[in-house]
Nucleic acid binder design. Structure first.
Length: 497
RNA sequence: GUUCCCUUCGUCUAGAGGCCUAGGACAUCGCCCUUUCACGGCGAAGACACGGGUUCGACUCCCGUAGGGAACGCCA
């Protein structure tokens, strides 16, 4: 399955991520970018960012910047292309936004036109539809048949002017019975027959060239050595190979990554829940966990280790460990992995990352180091995402105390009132501002003895009086996080005083 | 319809002809820890899509079949 790696890096490694700014950065795109980045890092090459914005209707600069920011958030940095901070480009082979490269494309379109390897096509959409229908009826593959296929450039231009037309430009597929072969880094030897496609459009009637053309030109001009892209581009490669060949460009190596699916085995999309990188960010996933997780969809480390730092991924990265089968995105495993990373974080770091989530919910927490350390130590093992901290910390936040419905059963117990009254009076006589875990333990022993209550009927009411709910973290750990005053206030609230 | 790609536990995967009684991870279930909920520890269950070849021997190589996917766009 994976004997086809060349394992050689003859050319200077230059890889590119080429998103089209028609939406937010998708985890699928993020994975491609990640592989680009890892590959470049591993082989000391360059990682280039190119913006494929030839779809004038759907492309928006706003999307471009958001995608770039998400890429940076993931820790993937590039040496050439538009940069977020300066809003300017770096690199010598720009511009890196295709809409600013139109002159370049025009030159090559003209060259093809002059050489008779492309032609102006005056077929209307209606005519094309008709041809398509005929092909379908005869169970033949559709190949556009253009009357102007063999016209000279001058004749076509004259015709255009005379009739005020806006023709497209089609690449003339004159390859007869030729097999286009290449070695895919993921799939091995690939071969496409030249008659798999007909003459294809390389320039729209608007004058804007199309993806398969500009992509090829730019990869060649930007000296891209390896193209990592999603599997859906596999069949496009034939068109691009034809262009490489007629223009005499060196072609890069290709790696067509398997596709990411949702749990219903359909292509991962919005209806499967979160799919954009920014959504995962908002839900409290760590960039290092997200990249680790997506790296493992379609690639594996030689050791079989699953928790891998960026450095470990770089060190172990190679294109012979790609899996060619598509994979299903499993949000549960992502959560698990995120939890692993969360627990490894330094408290100071974790606390800092938590602030944006607390702020959003107007949670005001103490900030002194001892308290933070204690609180984090108590709660971090219950967190899977940063956002989980909100519900964990809310109960110990003074302004947010309330009695949950789940507490009503406990409150109805016969012994509950007695326990809480006793608890209240003990705490009010306590000499310090905060109770220690040890003092709390001693105190519960005392209650147990004097009230003749133990086990659940003892601890559940106390928990309710502390956080408003009968379930949660260990009481001894919770106690030192609340001031004596706050504890008293709460027990009063619960007792309805 | 044509061309091309893909198929190992529910999910991510390991697997380069004998190391396979198919390994690991998530999820699931059980036990332990625990006054609750988690964390953690230990354990169980669970897969080579199917059929033919080739071979002394096939998860691995070849050919079919089935299922899934892509392209056949003036989307990328």
């Amino acid at each position: 399955m994976k004997l086809h790696n060349t394992n050689s890096t003859p050319k200077k490694v230059r890889v590119r991520f080429a998103p089209s700014p028609t939406g937010y950065l998708h985890v699928g795109g993020a994975r491609t970018a990640l592989y680009d980045y890892l590959f470049a890092q591993k082989f000391g090459g360059e990682f280039i960012l190119r913006i494929e914005d030839t779809d004038e209707e759907r492309s928006k600069d706003e999307y471009m910047w958001s995608q770039l920011e998400d890429l940076k958030w993931l820790g993937l940095t590039w040496s050439e292309g538009p940069q977020v901070e300066t809003q300017k480009e770096t690199g010598d082979l720009g511009p890196y936004q295709q809409k600013y490269r139109l002159e370049i494309y025009k030159k090559y379109i003209d060259q093809l036109l002059d050489q008779g390897q492309a032609y102006y096509c005056f077929l209307t959409e209606g005519e094309l539809d008709q041809q398509r229908e005929v092909a379908k009826k005869n169970k033949l593959p559709f190949r556009p048949l253009s009357p102007s296929r063999d016209w000279s450039k001058d004749k076509a231009l004259a015709h255009t002017k005379e009739n005020q037309l806006q023709p497209t430009v089609r690449f003339k597929n004159n390859f007869k019975n030729k097999k286009f072969e290449f070695k895919d880094l993921v799939r091995g030897d690939m071969s496409f027959p030249s008659d798999m496609i007909g003459d294809f459009v390389i320039q729209r009637s608007s004058g804007m060239p199309v993806y398969n053309f500009v992509c090829t030109i730019d990869d060649a001009l930007m000296k891209i050595s390896h193209v990592f892209r999603a599997e859906e581009h596999l069949s496009n490669t034939l068109k691009q190979l034809m262009i490489y060949e007629t223009l005499g460009f060196d072609r890069p190596e290709f790696a067509h990554l398997s596709i990411m699916l949702g749990e219903d085995r359909q292509k991962l999309s919005k209806r499967h829940g979160a799919t954009s990188v920014s959504q995962f960010k908002e839900e409290g996933y760590l960039p290092e966990a997200l990249t680790n997780f997506i790296a493992l969809m379609g690639w594996s480390s030689p050791s079989g280790e699953e928790i891998l730092s960026q450095k470990e991924m770089i060190d172990n990265f190679s294109s012979d460990r790609f899996n060619s089968a598509s994979s299903v995105f499993d949000p549960e495993k992502l959560k698990w992995m995120n939890a692993q990373y969360l627990r490894k974080l330094e408290h100071q770091d974790l606390w800092q990352r938590l602030q944006v989530f607390f702020d959003k919910e107007h949670l005001k927490l103490p900030q002194d180091k001892t308290w933070v350390d204690m609180a984090l130590e108590t709660f971090k093992s219950s967190m899977e995402t940063l956002k989980d901290a909100v519900e964990l910390f809310r109960p110990i936040c003074p302004d947010h105390f309330k009695l949950e419905d789940s507490a009503s059963e406990v409150m109805a117990w016969e012994t509950t009132a007695k326990v809480l009254e006793y608890w209240k009076s003990e705490v009010s006589n306590y000499p310090h501002d905060y109770l220690s875990a040890e003092d709390f333990k001693a105190l519960t022993k005392k209650i147990q003895k004097d009230c003749e209550v133990k086990g659940k009927p003892l601890f559940m009411p106390l928990r309710v009086a502390l956080i408003g709910a009968p379930q949660g973290v260990e009481l001894a750990k919770l106690i030192p996080l609340l001031s004596r005053q706050e504890i008293l206030r709460r027990v009063s609230v619960v007792l309805g005083v």
